[in-house]
Design a protein around this nucleic acid. Structure first.
Length: 597
RNA sequence: GGGGGUGUAGCUUAGUGGCUCAAAGCAGUCGCCUGUCGAGCGAAAGAUCGUGGGUUCAAAUCCCAUCAUCCCCGCCA
């Protein structure tokens, strides 16, 4: 039907007769000469029609409106030297339309302007309702194509360079304990029983290792029925990988090579290797989080030992009850951050409060080591302590020191959050950087205070660190995350492949042997038939593409995303269904609409 | 479940108690215009001010409720 794409035409095509198809991006009718910008996903090309040179198309050209779908046949011509458009890739040429065929007009008012020239931010609600129009627009078209380039490059690399094979795993599977809430699907043929949609292909990919697949990958859709965020959708996509007979170092090397290849191929960016590594413990100590944004400094300083005997009870009390005192030192913080903001009611104070902090102690460092703070702190600091404090935090005149004191998790959470807010506000973030960072050695278990039991910190299949086998309760696991600019991009581990260790882990998270066998018996059994040592990881593909696209929400790299209420504004899902459908599925809703008063 | 923001013409916004206060740009319609590329000029048209209730002589504006959407907390092994 067509000979070229719109965005493809260059000076080399001058003189050729071409046929193009696409949408009318914009039309400029000068009364004598008509210009049309014709658009397809490859770009824009200017079409020209006038009564003398293109008498056959002139009438039709005048009747065209934005977003009409047309076929244009014409001659590619050099533009007059004073009419070149350097902002268009095709701006050196134009097409004289000998013939224009209209495929479809637009019969309704457009809900928003689609043209590439239109830069206004349309309300997202509208964009989602008319997503097919939104996807025509340059930004989303670009994101969609970027996403394709990313998956294509990853596939080529994994298959052709590393010998991975893609294997599909079930979407209808069984519900697993732990983890996120499952999406459930009722079984018609097994009344009262349910499938779950997979939160990840975890179990299957491990079974594939037992099957001898050796190197597996899948662009896998995953489902988690939890509340949404800018970077969380109920269905999302992982690049899921699992490998047999590889050490952690080998897995890292392969993945770094893949990521570097990806950025080089898709964006022409050369990343430096190897990626830095930080243990979980060190990351928590220095940044208060397991996914630090290392594009800026503002590292936390632990001063617990220095202040454990302080007369200021907020500090000494925190340490006495097993907590910590840590400092977020902010260079030039004195000028940048007023007292109003860090005192009760201030925005930074409120940030701290939402993390559980009850106060936000601070010290302002003045000239010659003088400090400025509340009396209760100043009176209880000896000159030696003060000096030591300034030395350890690297504080100079102008520094603002913000303190977190209390429960370790709370302090870390508070100072991590403040660090991010301040880092952003003070413009410390070099947005051109791509800081990849491996976080390793996560703990095997975390204490769930509500349920009064240990739970798997990562997932219950992560192998314990070989040095820590003597006490699994406090063991580190061979788990790793890959962090990019503060986003958890990848998560993985070496897996347990000995059934007896797997059983011990199940027991430690409070799962009886019977329950473990009932739920994972197939897995334990499989491991009894010769499971290879294996490990793997999964990339949050939406997040990866989002970061590469420079977007702030994964919705902008997902063609048809859900709203925060997990609704699809385009199709109006979820929706009610016929009573007959429910009956066949042996399902009845217990939902009672709120009575209107 | 909780905290915060947004909702005014098809779109993007202005308007924070009254006096042409319902306004502007773009889009759409009509007319003019032979080198524009966010074309230009001109005309007419276009708004239950999210919805419902309340306060007031008077509400887009204040109050209450509600709906939608966004950000965050909880949640997301």
């Amino acid at each position: 039907m067509r000979t070229h794409s719109c965005g493809q035409l260059r000076a080399e095509h001058i003189g050729e007769t071409v046929t193009l198809c696409g949408w009318v991006d914009r039309h400029r009718d000068h009364g004598g000469v008509i210009f049309l910008d014709l658009r397809d996903r490859t770009g824009l090309i200017q079409i020209v029609s006038d009564p003398e040179r293109t008498p056959n198309s002139y009438q039709q050209a005048g009747d065209l409106r934005n977003e009409y779908v047309v076929k244009v046949t014409g001659r590619v011509s050099q533009r007059p030297s004073d009419s070149l458009n350097p902002r268009l890739a095709t701006g050196e040429v134009e097409v004289y339309a000998d013939h224009i065929e209209l495929f479809n007009a637009v019969n309704r008012q457009l809900p928003f302007q689609v043209s590439a020239a239109e830069t206004e931010n349309v309300r997202e609600e509208l964009r989602l309702k008319y997503r097919y129009l939104d996807l025509r627009r340059e930004r989303m078209s670009r994101n969609l194509q970027l996403r394709h380039q990313v998956t294509k490059t990853l596939r080529r690399y994994l298959e052709d360079v590393q010998g991975f094979m893609e294997v599909e795993t079930p979407i209808l599977t069984r519900s697993t304990p732990e983890g996120a809430r499952d999406y459930l699907v009722p079984s018609r043929v097994s009344p009262g029983e349910w499938y779950a949609l997979p939160q990840s292909p975890q179990l299957f990919k491990q079974l594939l290792m037992v099957s001898g697949v050796d190197r597996y990958y899948q662009i896998a859709r995953c489902f988690r029925d939890e509340d949404l965020r800018a970077d969380r959708q109920p269905e999302f996509t992982q690049l899921d990988m699992e490998m047999s007979f590889m050490t952690q170092a080998e897995i890292f090397a392969l993945n770094e090579d893949m990521v570097c290849h990806l950025f080089k191929t898709v964006q022409g960016v050369e990343l430096s290797r190897p990626f830095p590594q930080l243990t979980y413990a060190e990351s928590m100590e220095r940044y208060g989080t397991d996914k630090p944004d290392t594009r800026f400094g503002l590292e936390l300083v632990n001063v617990s030992d220095l202040l454990k005997d302080s007369g200021f009870k907020v500090f000494s009390g925190a340490i006495a009850s097993g907590g910590v005192v840590k400092v977020l030192p902010i260079p030039q913080g004195n000028d940048a951050i007023s007292n109003v903001r860090i005192k009760p009611g201030g925005d930074l104070f409120k940030e701290a409060e939402t993390c559980g902090a009850r106060g936000l102690a601070y010290i302002r460092v003045r000239e010659n080591g003088e400090i400025d703070t509340i009396g209760a702190i100043k009176d209880n600091l000896t000159p030696t302590q003060t000096q030591e404090l300034l030395e350890r935090t690297g504080a100079q005149a102008g520094h603002l020191l913000l303190f977190g004191a209390g429960d370790t998790n709370m302090v870390n959470k508070t100072l991590d959050r403040l660090r991010q807010v301040v880092g952003r506000e003070l413009g410390l973030i070099d947005t051109s950087q791509l800081n990849f960072l491996w976080i390793t050695d996560f703990p095997m278990f975390e204490w769930n205070a509500e349920e009064k039991r240990l739970e798997a910190a990562h997932n219950p299949f992560a192998a314990p660190h070989p040095d820590d086998l003597h006490d699994l309760k406090t063991a580190r696991s061979q788990t790793y995350d890959l962090v990019l600019n503060g986003f958890e991009l990848v998560s993985g581990s070496l897996r347990i492949y000995q059934p007896e260790i797997q059983q011990q882990v199940f027991e430690l998270i409070g799962m009886s042997m019977e329950e473990a066998h009932r739920r994972f018996g197939f897995m334990l059994e499989a491991f009894d038939y010769g499971a290879p040592p294996h490990g793997g990881l999964a990339y949050g593909l939406d997040r990866l593409v989002m970061l590469m696209a420079g977007e702030e929400s994964i919705r902008d790299v997902i063609p048809f995303p859900k709203t925060q209420q997990a609704r699809c504004l385009l199709t109006a899902a979820p929706s009610g269904v016929d009573a007959q459908q429910l009956k066949e599925l042996h399902v009845a809703s217990t939902y009672q609409p709120k009575s209107s008063t």
